[in-house]
Amino acid sequence: MEPALFIVFGAIAVGGAIMVVTRRHPMASALYLILTLFAVAGLFVLRQAHFLAAIQVIVYAGAVVVLFVFVIMLINVPEDKLPVERVTGMRFLGVVVAGLLILESALIVRRSGMAGTPAADSGSVEAVGRALFTDYLLAFELTSVLLLAAVIGAIALAKKKI
């Protein structure tokens, strides 16, 4: 069952990601980004990481992409003022380098040969919560400081007068 679902979710994730980077209008990109994030959440479920799958849908699709959509609508760039994307030598080279990066990672994965032992429920809410509030409590609290800093920074930056 898992290989078939992996292929389905993986294909949706990769296809959605390609659509995100190739669409002209950012709103289309944002909607394809939601598709990709849902497919990745499905992959998390396949790896028994149920907590992360839920967080992925709630935080990414529910908060981050909504923020993107808000900003796209807020600044509302008219169609003719969207940047004109022409294929230049440097940018073509950039895409080629990105392709080489994929090739390189494929070669590394092929040579590393990681063996997979079956995991019971390493990503369940109970297991993650227990680790988060015992071993990783300091990191968890620092996370809240990071988010507070981000909130204050976002408000300060988006004010009328900076």
Binding site: V20, L43, G94, M114
Partner: peptide
């Protein structure tokens, strides 16, 4: 349970697509 290498390969592909988007697009969003 599948081996993790297929997931790692998918991860590399997604990362490469992201890199291509960052270096090739002009739209900040």
């Amino acid at each position: 349970m599948m081996e993790p290498s297929a997931y790692l390969l998918l991860s590399g592909i997604l990362f490469g697509i992201g890199v291509a988007g960052v270096v090739a697009r002009k739209n900040v969003l």
